[in-house]
Design a protein around this nucleic acid. Structure first.
Length: 105
DNA sequence: CCAATGACTAATC
DNA sequence: CGATTAGCCATTG
């Protein structure tokens, strides 16, 4: 399986997210040069090989919503990993999202 | 090339 | 707050 360039860009962006921080699909889309391709970004993230180097669980919805997670454990595991990294999560939502949200440079 | 799909977002109800 | 609708774009068959 050969991955597309779009997917590589998305995963490159994911690797830049520091531990204990989260980002939104929209930010990634903007960073890779396609501000409106949030749907495509979500699809690309979901197809990632789930390698340890790609922290796909640090990607949440713009308003702080957890969103989805295709890995083992689903959304539940995603929340757990975030909390484990120091991101406070209440229900299916990041509490201090404005503070934890990471923006690419 | 056309149609369907999906880890999104914003607007409405 | 949850459900629905409509736009959005890259990928896939």
């Amino acid at each position: 399986m050969i991955y597309t360039n779009f997917q590589n860009l998305v995963w490159e962006a994911l690797k830049k997210i520091p531990r204990g921080r989260v980002t939104s699909y929209g930010e990634i889309a903007k960073f890779i040069g396609s501000p409106g391709a949030v749907r495509a970004v979500g699809t690309a993230v979901g197809k990632n090989p789930d390698a340890p180097r790609i922290p796909c669980h640090r990607v949440v919805q713009k308003g702080g919503g957890i969103g989805q997670y295709s890995g083992p454990g689903g959304v539940k595991a995603k929340i757990r990993m975030l909390e484990d990294e120091g991101v406070a999560v209440g229900g299916a939502r990041v509490l201090d999202v404005k503070q934890k949200m990471f923006f690419f440079e």
